Simulated assay, not measured.
Amino acid sequence: MGRLLHISASPRDEASESLRIAQVFTDTYRETHPGDEVEHWDLWDGSLPDFAVGAKAKMTVFGGGEPQGAEGAAWAAARRTFERFDAADRLLFSVPMWNASVPYVLKQFVDVVSQPGWIFTVDPATGYGHQLAGRGKRVAVVYTSAVWGPPLGPEFGSDFQSTFFNDWLRWTGLTDISEIRFHPTLTGDYEEARRTADAQASGIAKGF
């Protein structure tokens, strides 16, 4: 039995296009993968740990030490977050564009789970090692925006949303990435963009 984990970064509930498109994906996935488990992780639900003390613990680990006390508790909380993420063999992220990039709660998730020995290793000669590579995990990402769109010039903003997040995924070793796009822009055909995104989501979910 497989496991699909939907990690959502929008707090807008029914008003969110990224969540709506992700629902199309998960509905199709449930229909076509009836034996698989599907879980939704709302990053706004308070489950992400604060990482101020965790950042100190990270440097303790880098130095070859074992975090103790408050650092140890923060490190354990980060580890639990990573294990929830790592337990899925199929990952769906719904990511709205905020100020040309991703919502800060998604960056918090990235910073919490991106730890030495879990996500990456570092070698002075060869650079980073990608710890999630070669494990058969697949990723789908729903990218949405309202103003910026691929055909528009820089006066309508820039895409640091998918460029940042896709780069992070590949850095972890997750390279099997499917994108679902919804960028209707201010003057585009909103309903047509919706139909296209829904068809993408459904089509990818069937073979995911």
Rank of each mutant, 00 (worst) to 15 (best):
G2H: 13
L4W: 01
E14A: 14
I21Y: 14
T26P: 08
T28V: 15
D36I: 09
E37L: 07
E39M: 12
W41F: 13
L43M: 14
D45I: 13
L48G: 05
P49D: 10
D50N: 12
A52G: 14
V53S: 11
V53E: 14
G54T: 12
A55K: 11
K58G: 04
V61A: 09
V61D: 06
F62A: 11
E66G: 00
A70V: 06
A74K: 04
W75K: 02
A78I: 02
R80E: 15
T81G: 03
R84C: 05
A87F: 01
A88R: 02
L92N: 04
F93N: 04
S94A: 14
V95R: 06
N99I: 09
Y104Q: 08
K107A: 12
Q108A: 15
S114G: 13
S114C: 14
W118K: 06
A125R: 04
G127S: 08
Q131L: 15
V139E: 00
A140S: 12
T144V: 07
S145P: 10
A146K: 05
W148L: 05
P151I: 05
P151S: 09
L152S: 03
G153S: 10
S158M: 12
D159A: 10
Q161H: 06
W168F: 15
G173H: 05
L174N: 01
S178W: 00
P184F: 03
T187P: 03
E192C: 01
R195G: 08
A197H: 03
A199H: 03
G203P: 07
